[in-house]
Structures are given as structure tokens and as C-alpha cells.
Amino acid sequence: MKAKDKKLHDLPKLAEIDRVIHEPARLMILGYLSAVDGGEFLFLMNQTKLTRGNLSSHLSKLEEAGYVTIQKEFVNKIPRTLIKLTERGRDALGSYLAQMNSVFKGLAP
């Protein structure tokens, strides 16, 4: 490619963005999970301020995409749902951030 043909911005890359991650609530969930080695459902609910049903539905979508694992266990007869970010989820989040950074470089209000 000649230098003059080279694009100075990456806006078309927005079309390739991962829409599973691009949703604000799911991005928030992945953000918190990337900061820990695993967190309970209640921990995510408190941090993201999402309702139980909302969080549950977003987690299902992330689990379907293979970005998180959801383990249900009982601790002292109380159910505990432990959510972890998978390697695939971590890589996807990394790629998403890299894509968004390159897109933002070309933008100005």
C-alpha cells in the first residue's frame, strides 16, 4: 500500500467491534471481573448497580460467548454463584480495548 492511500483513522473498524462486549452493562461486568480472580454474583451486583434479573441475563450472554464461567456452589447451605473471566474473555476484552483505542485516536469533538 502506498503511503498516500493509507488511512489516517480507523473508523471503519467500529463495524467489526465485538457487540457482546460493546454493551455498557456487559463491559462493566467484564471490567470488574478483569480486576479480580473471581467474584460472587452479589459482588458484581453491588459494583455494577444492576438489578438481579438484568445482571443474570447479561451473565448468560457472556457465558454463551465463552467469556465467563459461572459456578454454583453452596457455602454453609447458602447458594453462592462464583463468576470468573475466562482466558477467551480476557483476550476479547484486550482486543476490544485495543480496537476502541485506535478508533478514538482519530476522533475529536
Binding site: 480486576a35 479480580v36 480472580d37 473471581g38 467474584g39 460472587e40 454474583f41 452479589l42 459482588f43 458484581l44 451486583m45 453491588n46 453462592r80 462464583l82
Partner: peptide, 8 residues
């Protein structure tokens, strides 16, 4: 708060 584990 909900249980969470720090990064290893």
C-alpha cells in the same frame, strides 16, 4: 458485599 478473590 459479596465474596471476591484478588488476582493470584
Amino acid at each position: 458485599l459479596g465474596y471476591f478473590k484478588f488476582k493470584k
